[in-house]
Deep mutational scan, measured.
Amino acid sequence: EVPFKVVAQFPYKSDYEDDLNFEKDQEIIVTSVEDAEWYFGEYQDSNGDVIEGIFPKSFVAVQG
């Protein structure tokens, strides 16, 4: 069931425009499960802007 919160276990950096880049310990709200390997989610950056994109499930852990 979406949405749910995950926390980055590792930093994720990608050159693909659709990917969500983040640092370790970033909290991310997952709004869609793309497939067995990928989530789609969002978070607010330090400027208060909402950043969204896809990212690999293996880089995050589900909270709770």
Rank of each mutant, 00 (worst) to 15 (best):
1 E>T: 13
1 E>L: 12
1 E>Y: 10
2 V>E: 05
2 V>L: 10
2 V>M: 07
3 P>C: 09
3 P>L: 06
4 F>D: 01
4 F>T: 01
4 F>H: 01
4 F>C: 06
5 K>S: 08
6 V>Q: 03
6 V>N: 01
6 V>S: 02
6 V>F: 04
7 V>S: 04
7 V>K: 10
7 V>P: 02
7 V>Q: 04
9 Q>D: 04
9 Q>P: 02
9 Q>N: 08
10 F>N: 06
10 F>I: 10
11 P>N: 08
11 P>H: 08
11 P>F: 05
11 P>C: 10
11 P>A: 14
11 P>L: 05
12 Y>L: 03
12 Y>I: 02
13 K>E: 07
13 K>R: 13
13 K>Y: 14
14 S>N: 04
14 S>I: 03
14 S>E: 03
15 D>S: 11
15 D>A: 11
16 Y>Q: 13
16 Y>C: 15
16 Y>L: 11
16 Y>G: 15
16 Y>S: 15
17 E>V: 11
17 E>Q: 12
17 E>C: 14
17 E>R: 10
17 E>A: 13
18 D>C: 15
18 D>L: 15
18 D>Y: 15
19 D>L: 07
19 D>S: 14
20 L>V: 00
20 L>W: 03
20 L>M: 08
21 N>R: 07
21 N>F: 11
21 N>I: 07
21 N>P: 07
22 F>N: 00
22 F>H: 02
23 E>V: 07
23 E>K: 06
23 E>D: 11
24 K>A: 09
24 K>Q: 08
24 K>D: 02
25 D>A: 06
25 D>R: 04
26 Q>H: 03
26 Q>A: 03
26 Q>S: 02
26 Q>D: 02
26 Q>T: 06
27 E>A: 06
27 E>P: 05
27 E>W: 08
27 E>K: 04
27 E>N: 05
28 I>E: 00
28 I>S: 00
28 I>D: 00
28 I>Y: 03
28 I>A: 00
29 I>W: 14
29 I>A: 03
29 I>M: 13
29 I>C: 14
30 V>P: 01
30 V>H: 03
30 V>L: 04
30 V>F: 04
30 V>N: 03
30 V>A: 02
31 T>S: 04
31 T>V: 07
32 S>V: 07
32 S>H: 14
32 S>M: 11
33 V>Y: 08
33 V>T: 06
33 V>E: 06
33 V>P: 03
34 E>G: 09
35 D>K: 08
35 D>W: 08
35 D>H: 08
35 D>M: 08
35 D>C: 11
36 A>M: 09
36 A>H: 12
36 A>E: 13
37 E>H: 12
37 E>W: 12
37 E>G: 09
37 E>R: 07
37 E>F: 14
37 E>Y: 14
39 Y>R: 00
39 Y>Q: 02
39 Y>H: 02
39 Y>S: 00
40 F>M: 08
40 F>T: 05
41 G>M: 03
41 G>C: 05
41 G>Y: 03
41 G>I: 03
41 G>Q: 02
41 G>A: 02
41 G>V: 04
42 E>W: 15
42 E>S: 13
42 E>V: 09
42 E>A: 09
43 Y>G: 00
43 Y>N: 02
43 Y>S: 01
43 Y>E: 00
44 Q>D: 03
45 D>W: 04
45 D>H: 07
45 D>Y: 04
45 D>Q: 07
45 D>M: 10
46 S>Y: 09
47 N>H: 10
47 N>T: 08
47 N>P: 00
47 N>A: 08
48 G>R: 03
49 D>Q: 13
49 D>T: 12
50 V>W: 13
50 V>G: 03
50 V>L: 13
50 V>I: 14
51 I>T: 06
52 E>N: 13
52 E>S: 15
52 E>P: 02
53 G>I: 04
53 G>T: 01
53 G>Q: 01
53 G>W: 03
53 G>S: 01
54 I>C: 14
54 I>P: 06
54 I>N: 12
54 I>R: 15
54 I>L: 15
55 F>T: 00
55 F>S: 02
55 F>E: 01
55 F>K: 00
56 P>W: 06
56 P>I: 04
57 K>D: 06
57 K>M: 12
57 K>T: 11
57 K>H: 07
58 S>I: 10
59 F>N: 06
59 F>G: 02
59 F>W: 06
59 F>R: 04
59 F>Q: 06
59 F>E: 05
60 V>T: 05
61 A>F: 11
61 A>N: 10
61 A>H: 12
62 V>F: 13
62 V>D: 07
63 Q>A: 13
63 Q>K: 13
64 G>W: 09
